[in-house]
Amino acid sequence: MLAAEAGGQRRFEVEADTVGSVLRSLPVANLVFDERGQLRQLVNVYVDGVDVREHDGMDTRLTGSEEIRLVAAIAGG
């Protein structure tokens, strides 16, 4: 769904200091974040394979060429 909402684009190259800055620059930012700017509960974010909730969440610092993946949680019907 996110790729469809981004015009079919699945990968973006972004320069930013934090995970939150990267995600807020995406054309799907208002799907990833709610109206209070909080990451939606069922959206999982991984930096090089590690859940950012195990780091500093949206404040997780980026240093170089990390790969960030957005994955919808397993839920629903």
């Binding site: 769904m1 996110l2 208002n30 799907l31 939606r40 069922l42 629903g76």
Partner: peptide, 8 residues
């Protein structure tokens, strides 16, 4: 509406 991505 989406249970993951909210209401729009």
């Amino acid at each position: 509406n989406s249970f993951v991505y909210g209401a729009t």
